[in-house]
Amino acid sequence: MVTKRKLNIAVSGLNAIDSPGPGVAVIRALREAKSFDCKIIGLAYESLEPGIFMHNLVDKTYQIPYPLAGIDAIMERIEYIHAKEQLDIIIPNFDSELYPFIRLEPKLKEMGIHMCLPTMEQFEERHKMNLNEFGEKYGIHVPKSKNISSSSEIKDISKDFKYPVLVKGKYYDAYVAYNADQVKTYYNKISAKWGLPIIIQEFVHGTEFNVTGLGDGLGNTIAAVPMRKQYITEKGKAWGGISVADKKMLELTDLFISQTKWRSGFELELMKDKENKFYLLEINPRMPAWIYLSVGVGQNIPEALVNLAMGETVEPFTEYTVGKMFVRYAWDMIVDIKEFHAISQEGEL
């Protein structure tokens, strides 16, 4: 009997809430990997992230400091966790974590911890704030956008845009505003949470599609799964979706990967207008919360990402099942207060 290698994999994004982090979905995929077995180490920021208490998926969880605490604080905590768990891989699942982890990558590699992340240049270039330049450079349609850093600029929006417009935070949150007053409300709301600048983006009417995929850093598409959102929550999150066959989206994904030489998992947010033209609304530099659909259609992207991180050659997936749906659900877990105390007070469970 062949024994599969066992990898110790740390995963963040355990907040399986109404605007969910991808961690739990990534872990489900890793548990179904055919090429390795794994011990899953959860990395949590808050004591009530649901993944912490999912003991069938997560073997052990450690609290880690928020990215704002700085890379030294993060490094110190990772060193502590590594001493106990001998980590092979870390999969950070939040946009805001990528900046510190990209910077820590060489140090972590010396410690024997692997990651599959975009380069700092790729990470910065695809930023919402730089999407116009990105579209121009790579020949990809993007909606017109403008960054504003002062509320005094709001009155001038109507010179450049027709209402409604999208008001977006640099990391998260997006609202549709129909007039300058609404822009001001959202400007204050978002800037209080995520800081400046705020991005004003042309509102494209149409149907929302997403593609999740994986690039190997050499310009090759290892995986790509397009999905149409079928059920969208008030926060704009897909609560249900279906895999689709649209070739244009796959071509767009190949173009994105070959042009940027993207390394890592990602999600492209697309809008198809009435003329069947696709606009790239956003590039998320990590796997999405619906990544488990990739397993459902035959492309286990988290497994492939782990193998890439470990330096292995990964053969590109060539097909996937069209017409497979995901339907998300909420689930109440019963948790003993001792567990809550352990993660809150000792920072591990």
């Binding site: 979706g241 279906i242 689709v244 066959a245 069209v322």
Partner: peptide
Amino acid sequence: FNPDTGET
């Protein structure tokens, strides 16, 4: 089911 658009 239209597999290109995902519409049913």
